[in-house]
């Protein structure tokens, strides 16, 4: 459904106040997301995961330089096509809960999302109510303002927004951060359910352990580059089927794997 081929992204910065220079924040990023699967992108803070999400949605603030090829459903995903497909075929579940408008009741915000996705105006409220009920949000939570919701509930409102868009590709940016285990499983299961409906889910997370149960394939990112893409099944035992040392080290460093630490390799130099 989505192919990313050799994506590179440069963002400007000022070395001093008159000379603009470009920092390479993504480089050699290639991966494929297929319908019906959850594809996890795992990396530490600053690995470029959220930038990747925003580049896919076409939400980066100008100016930026982007090279490489994006293909969605067999056709090149240009900026114009991104604009057209956003909210209809492409959906983003954002990292920050502050993406909810603090001044608007949650049901109303989901209605707006439904309207933007092209639902008929007469039906949007019904659609929103159903979507929120689908994620176990009762009438009281639906009429609440974002500051009255718990983190898990707010996260589910954001998921409901992606749900009403009936998008084929859903990018979830750190959906489980800051949640207790029960809420986290609820949110991750909701994503797995979307994949079972035949949608493609790109799960962005720093949390390898909890992404594995629902992901079919995993891409490890580091400093703006793809380190390795491996099937989720490769992350088991001592991880000997993983081809890169970084991925192996990341896997073995988990508490369940006794924090073991194979000899580390230096980070690849990024210009």
């Amino acid at each position: 459904m989505l192919e990313i081929d050799d994506l590179a992204l440069q963002l400007p910065y000022y070395a001093n106040w008159w000379r603009r220079q470009w920092a390479e924040v993504l480089c050699n990023v290639s991966l494929e997301v297929h319908p019906g699967e959850v594809h996890a992108v795992i990396g530490a803070s600053g690995a470029g995961k959220s930038l990747l999400a925003h580049a896919l949605m076409g939400l980066l603030p100008a100016p930026y330089r982007q090279t490489g090829r994006l293909t969605f459903q067999g056709q090149p995903l240009t900026a114009a096509r991104q604009r057209r497909l956003r909210g209809r075929e492409l959906a983003l579940i954002p990292q920050s809960l502050s993406a909810l408008d603090p001044l608007v009741r949650s049901q109303r915000q989901v209605s707006w999302a439904a309207k933007r996705a092209g639902h008929a105006a007469a039906r949007v409220q019904h659609t929103a109510r159903q979507a929120l009920a689908h994620y176990q949000l009762d009438e009281r939570a639906q009429q609440a303002f974002p500051h009255q919701l718990s983190g898990g509930m707010a996260r589910r409102v954001l998921t409901a927004m992606a749900h009403v868009s009936s998008a084929q590709l859903i990018i979830a940016d750190e959906p489980s951060v800051g949640l207790d285990p029960q809420q986290r499983d609820r949110v991750l299961n909701a994503l797995a359910a979307l994949a079972r409906e035949g949608k493609a889910v790109l799960l962005i997370s720093h949390d390898l352990r909890h992404a594995l149960p629902i992901a079919r394939r995993v891409t490890i990112m580091r400093q703006g580059r793809c380190v390795e893409t491996a099937p989720a099944a490769a992350f088991e035992g001592d991880g000997h089927t993983l081809t890169t040392r970084y991925a192996q080290a990341l896997w073995r460093a988990l508490p369940d794997n006794h924090f073991s630490h194979p000899e580390t390799q230096p980070a690849p130099h990024v210009a």
Binding site: L90, A91, L92, P94, D101, L158
Partner: peptide
């Protein structure tokens, strides 16, 4: 908030 609205088209 605005980024999310833009992401919804």
């Amino acid at each position: 908030v605005a980024t999310q609205a833009f992401a919804q088209g």
